[in-house]
Simulated scan of single mutants.
Amino acid sequence: MTDSAASCHELLLRLAGRLPDRQLWRFRDWLAAGALDALARTLPLTMLRDRLGITDQESVLLRAALLDAGADLGMLNSLPWVDEIADVGYTFTPESPEWANKGDSVAVVLGAVLGGRPEVLDVRESWRRHRSGQGPAIRVVLVTATADHARLTGELQRVLRALGSYEPCVEVLPDGGELTPYHEAALAASQPLLPGLPTYRRQLIGR
C-alpha cells in the first residue's frame, strides 16, 4: 500500500460514524481498487457539502492522501476545522438488541475468508445504535491486522454485501494504531466474531 493509500485509509477510519455508511463504504471500495483519483474528486466535495469539520491531523492526512491524486487545494482549505472529535452520537452493544441468533452466516463466511491469514490478528463485532434510539441496529465488524488494511477492507465489504448488508460497516484497524472515540467505544462493547483465531486483546486506554 502506497503512502497516499495508507493516509487515505487512516482518514476514512477517522470518518467512521461521521460520514453516512452509504458513502463511507463506497469510498473504501474505491480505495481498495486503487481509485485515488475518484476519491480526490469526490471525498472533499462530500465533506464540504456535509459541513464535516476536521482536525489538524485529519487535514494533514487529507492532503497527504489526495493532493497528488488531483484534489482541489482550494476545496481542501475550505473545510471547517474543529479542535477535536469527541462524540459521534452512537451507542454500542456486544449483541444485536433486535436479533439473538449467534449462529449466523456472517461468522461462518468470514471464518472461511480470513482463516489462515497471518496478517489478521483479531476479528470482533459490535452492534451500533443511534443514541436517539431511532433506526435499526447495525453490525460493525472490527478487524485488527498488520498489513493490507485498505485491500482487506474492500474484500470484507464485498463479502458482507454478498450476504445482504448493502452498506457494510467494516473497520480494519492497524495493530497498535491510534483509536478514534468511535472505535474505542465499538471495541469496548465488542465480542469475538471468530473465536478460533489466536487470542488477541487490544489494550485500550482505561481498560
Score class of each variant (00 low, 15 high):
149 H>E: 08
174 P>V: 01
3 D>F: 02
205 I>N: 15
201 R>Q: 12
142 L>I: 10
36 L>C: 06
48 L>R: 04
203 Q>Y: 03
74 G>D: 13
84 E>P: 01
5 A>P: 00
23 Q>T: 02
17 G>A: 11
157 Q>V: 03
105 S>P: 00
70 G>D: 07
104 D>Y: 06
98 E>Y: 04
99 W>H: 07
153 T>C: 14
182 Y>W: 15
101 N>Q: 09
133 G>K: 09
58 E>K: 00
155 E>T: 05
132 S>Y: 13
186 A>Y: 09
86 A>H: 05
187 L>C: 06
65 A>T: 01
92 F>I: 08
199 T>K: 02
194 L>N: 12
93 T>W: 07
67 L>I: 06
191 Q>Y: 02
37 D>H: 05
25 W>V: 04
82 V>S: 10
55 T>F: 11
162 A>D: 15
77 N>E: 15
194 L>E: 14
78 S>P: 02
62 L>V: 03
144 T>H: 08
135 G>I: 11
181 P>G: 08
196 G>Q: 15
4 S>L: 01
18 R>W: 07
91 T>L: 15
81 W>C: 07
38 A>E: 10
156 L>G: 08
204 L>F: 11
177 G>V: 02
171 E>K: 02
157 Q>A: 05
51 R>E: 13
161 R>W: 12
182 Y>R: 11
66 L>S: 02
179 L>G: 14
195 P>E: 13
